[in-house]
């Protein structure tokens, strides 16, 4: 018993380090990928100078950020201002606890794993609010307020979409949900829920076309206008890690997690398929960002309350009905 507990702690600590290292590397890679995708969509090559095809560009940028002075505006609320970037990163790390990379590779396979991710994701919004408010800057405050409004509007259809998957599997445990998709992925059984999930996830991670909290053409940089150096870097890191988490959750809820395509055993470890699907989803999110213009705030609200929520409710109802009948 005691020994088991000891190994459990060791597992958690090793996991924490791996997660920290992975989230940094992942963010470095994603920033590079984002710039490359953006570049090629606009018929230009993107970063090319540092490293082969600019692969080391983000490392250079990161070093620059670390070297920058941390400026705190005089009128800012110091404590909250410093706390917000740290707070924004916490839920992101917690999310890694339950993501099922492969049948063996889950840090903690909790029976309410899905709830954990969504319960902690609300802290991101609070951190953005605290940071934006503490900056004592009108653009930052406007960005923070928009972020709150957006998250309230889009969390509801997001949870409803997840709920229809939970209804089908009778479980909130990630490993069971993925196992239930060994035959058919849920995106084929629940296309509406899958689509709603992806759209809401884009909105929850503040990505274009839902990036109104940091709309650079109207709000300078939104909630992180006053942040410099690595404090800004943390917000940036959290955004990209959030993207990974959201895509990983979508992969395990709708795209079959660690199962390969066509239900053929390729003798390839599950983590390969998982990461492949996750990064494809991330690519899709980037693709969406560089295709669509930012939507207006009233359009954003109308879209959520008049389209997404009724659709997801109807989808939930139909799912419940079918699950009951079958």
């Amino acid at each position: 018993m005691g020994n088991e507990l000891g190994t459990e702690w060791v597992r958690l600590i090793i996991g924490l380090f791996v997660v920290l290292a992975f989230s940094q590397l992942n963010a470095l890679f994603l920033v590079w990928l984002e710039r490359k995708v953006a570049g090629h969509i606009q018929l230009r090559p993107g970063p090319m100078e540092v490293g082969p095809h600019g692969l080391l560009q983000t490392i250079a940028d990161g070093l620059k950020l670390v070297g920058k002075e941390l400026i705190t505006p005089r009128a800012a609320d110091r404590r909250l201002f410093v706390m917000a970037p740290v707070l924004v990163f916490m839920p992101v790390l917690v999310g890694f606890l339950v993501i099922p990379f492969s049948p063996e590779l889950i840090l903690r396979d909790m029976n309410v794993g899905i709830l954990l991710i969504f319960a902690f994701s609300t802290f991101t919004v609070l951190a953005i609010l605290a940071g934006g408010w503490a900056s004592n800057n009108k653009y930052a405050l406007l960005g923070a307020i928009r972020s709150v409004g957006q998250s309230v509007a889009y969390e509801i259809p997001l949870l409803l979409a997840v709920l229809s998957v939970v209804l089908m599997t009778n479980s909130m445990r990630f490993s069971e949900i993925v196992e239930a998709q060994s035959k058919v992925w849920f995106i084929f059984l629940q296309p509406v829920a899958g689509l709603i999930f992806l759209i809401c996830a884009t909105a929850e991670t503040n990505r274009a076309p839902f990036d109104i909290p940091e709309a650079e053409s109207e709000l300078v940089a939104g909630f992180h206008t006053e942040y410099t150096g690595m404090r800004f870097g943390l917000f940036f890191l959290a955004e990209y890690t959030n993207m990974f988490i959201v895509s990983a959750v979508a992969t395990s809820l709708f795209f079959g997690g660690w199962h390969g395509p066509l239900w053929i055993d390729f003798k390839i470890p599950g983590i390969f398929w998982f990461l492949l699907k996750t990064y494809i989803l991330i690519f899709v999110i980037m693709w969406v960002r560089w295709t669509f213009p930012r939507i207006r705030f009233d359009q954003l609200m109308n879209f959520s309350w008049k389209v997404m929520i009724p659709l997801s409710l109807a989808n939930l109802l139909v799912t419940a009905l079918i699950v009951k009948l079958v």
Binding site: L43, M48, W290, T291, F292
Partner: peptide
């Protein structure tokens, strides 16, 4: 229309570049 837009951009993604380093 959104799908149409995505198709335009993905085609751009694989077109040759027009800028010069």
């Amino acid at each position: 229309s959104l799908v149409e837009g995505m198709r335009v951009t993905v085609r751009r993604l694989f077109q040759p570049l027009v800028t010069v380093q």
